[in-house]
Design a protein around this nucleic acid. Structure first.
Length: 565
RNA sequence: UGGGGCGUCGUCAAGCGGUAAGACACAAGACUUUGACUCUUGCAUUCGCAGGUUCGAAUCCUGCCGCCCCAGCCA
């Protein structure tokens, strides 16, 4: 086999992992590159996993190689097929393909058992009857060495017999464990005779009740990597302490290859929580609408929210990979979708908080069709037709009774352009008994048909509108960050749920959308001009009852100028 | 106070002895029938701190300081 050159763009500096891989290929340490993404099926994938997925599958792609999808399913008490299915779907949706290489650590249970027996035969593992508490107690502390187990020097034959009894279900849960025989005085606590197997009578989602002993992570992971011929085993920083053990197992056992573990910093994003444990709590305690709540940074949540796979890949590309703990600003993620959707999303008009406007000098009963660009910068995306009539809706925010000088929109006596339609001037403000503006009377300039005046007068403001008679009524859901503080799970006293943002979801009903939106399909994404990007909610939208999710807002310079929040 | 890591702009992040890339954010301006997009310009005399080596250091050496990880029969 010959080494395969990377396809990575050479205009960009290599991250430290790709640099190591290049070295390994050049030095001949490895002849090819095989990676793997090894999720435990005990929860849904989130944006942090996407970083790992893009890294592992991305490297495989660059080296014309493969990335295995392997479920690390060694703890049946927390795992289930539902998670396996969700994870599979998410990885595929992100745009990656593992070909034939779908594996389960549980597929290796027989071989793992044999490796354990081998270790026992070598005098490198023993069955320990100490209780969990006793093991902990004898493990020592960060500064004191541990004490050796009284069972440490059991004869090989006895260990073999006992381990077989464990496997055969002759011993109750917790009776004993299989431990590696390494060094109770090691400064690395993980090397102080770590547990390799425990007895666990729980039905496994794949092997059912065939096993009542299950291998631990440190024993399983390195051997699974080895069995699959993985060359570079990429994981997060907290596994750095496990690397000596990873290497010990593979060095001690007679194995044909030895994958290289490389650790990188996990992804942190502010104003959210990332751990599966915390996400699970939000789900279980009904603080969100399930794992795919559009406010959650799970892959399924982002999908339902309307994020594109390309935007998530782009995000992972932007943040890079390194070894320092870092916090990425939520804005970077938002920027990645905007970048993608700005290119691809057709533009439409939708009024979220409608204010009725009557064009008093426009003939009653008349309708005109205006041609609107689907994408002003991309004529190839075509045009559509938008109906106009005497009564329309505009955005309530686009009118101010007493506007400041810099406000370019509508106000009493002010003229504004209705996008693609006419220039209109506000003549009259109608209010209810509470003093709230309920309706506007305007006059249009018939000569400004299409939006520009023949006399060339400049109108600074252009606002969007929807014909009242033709409007599609819809529910629109506006999302904001789930938490009010940048590091919700780093407060010593308060639980992270105390920082949930009560305004993270705002449901608007009675929104008025242009008629073309009546036929929106689940995969469609639109830019509601001047508002943001939106998509139909895949769970709640029904024919005749449209529901749209706001994916992300547009950048809003006016908000900054006016000092709104 | 054991061991393993990490410290370059507000946030990410290049740099690997030759005199601080880029991105986001921010600021100013241009353009604009989306206050969007796009474009232009500005934004670290300085690389956790202190010494040292060198003609020359973010890069090498020494010593401090700060932060993260490890004492699950979780992964």
């Amino acid at each position: 086999m010959t080494s395969t050159p990377s396809d990575a763009p050479d205009n960009k500096p290599l991250d430290f992992i790709r640099a190591i891989i290049e070295e390994d290929l050049q030095s001949g340490r490895y002849e090819r590159v095989v990676t793997r993404f090894p999720p435990e099926p005990n929860g849904f994938l989130h944006i942090g996993h996407a970083k790992s997925i893009c890294l592992n599958f991305g490297i495989a792609r660059e080296y014309h190689s493969v990335c295995h999808l392997r479920f690390d399913d060694t703890n049946p008490s927390k795992e289930s097929v539902e998670y396996v299915e969700a994870i599979t779907e998410d990885v595929r949706w992100l745009g990656f393909d593992w070909g034939e290489h779908l594996y389960y650590a549980s597929d290796y249970f027989d071989r793992l058992y044999d490796f354990a027996v081998q270790l026992i035969r070598m005098g490198k593992a023993y069955v320990c009857h100490l209780s969990a508490d006793q093991i902990r107690e004898q493990r020592g502390t960060l500064t004191e060495p541990g004490r050796e187990s009284p069972y440490r020097d059991r004869p090989v034959e006895e260990n073999l017999r006992l381990f077989e009894q464990m496997k055969n279900g002759e011993l109750a849960d917790g009776t004993c464990v299989l431990r590696a025989r390494i060094d109770m005085a090691s400064p690395n606590i993980l090397m102080r005779d770590p547990v390799l197997y425990r007895i666990l009578r729980t039905t496994h989602h794949r092997t059912a009740d065939r096993w009542c002993i299950y291998p631990m992570y440190d024993f399983t992971h390195c051997l699974s990597d080895m069995i699959e011929g993985i060359t570079h085993s990429l994981c997060t920083l907290e596994f750095e302490n496990n690397r000596p053990l990873y290497d010990w197992v593979l060095d001690t056992l007679d194995t044909p290859c030895h994958p290289r573990q490389i650790e990188f910093a996990r992804l942190n994003i502010n104003y959210t929580v990332m751990s599966k444990r915390k996400l699970l709590r939000l789900v279980n305690e009904n603080r969100v609408d399930g794992w795919d709540d559009p406010r959650m940074l799970t892959i399924s949540g982002l999908r339902r929210r309307g994020y594109t796979p390309a935007s998530i890949r782009r995000f992972c590309d932007l943040i890079g990979v390194g070894r320092r703990e870092s916090w990425i600003d939520m804005g970077v993620l938002e920027n990645a979708v905007r970048e993608d959707l700005n290119e691809s999303a057709p533009r439409v008009m939708g009024v979220l908080r409608p204010l009725k406007v009557v064009i008093t000098n426009y003939p009653e009963g008349q309708t005109e069709q205006f041609e609107a660009l689907n994408h002003p910068q991309k004529p190839e995306m075509g045009t559509r037709t938008v109906p106009f009539s005497r009564e329309i809706f505009i955005e309530a925010d686009d009118f101010m009774e007493d506007p400041p000088k810099k406000f370019h929109r509508l106000g009493p006596g002010r003229e504004v352009r209705l996008r693609y339609a006419y220039l209109v001037t506000c003549d009259k403000v109608i209010k209810n008994d509470r003093g709230e503006v309920t309706e506007l009377h305007c006059t249009h300039d018939p000569a400004s048909r299409g939006g520009s005046a023949p006399d060339g007068r400049k109108v600074k403001g252009t606002i969007h509108w929807v014909s009242a008679r033709h409007a599609v009524e819809a529910e629109v859901r506006l999302y904001d960050r789930l938490f009010t503080v940048d590091h919700p799970d780093m407060d010593r006293e308060k639980d992270f749920k105390e920082f949930l943002n009560p305004d993270s979801l705002v449901v608007l009903s009675g929104c008025k959308l242009e008629p073309s939106l009546a036929t929106a399909r689940p995969e469609d994404r639109f830019q509601f001009e001047r508002q943001g990007y939106f998509c139909p909610d895949t769970r709640d939208a029904r024919p005749g009852r449209p529901v749209f999710n706001r994916i992300v807002t547009l950048r809003d310079t006016w908000k900054k100028i006016s000092g709104q929040t």
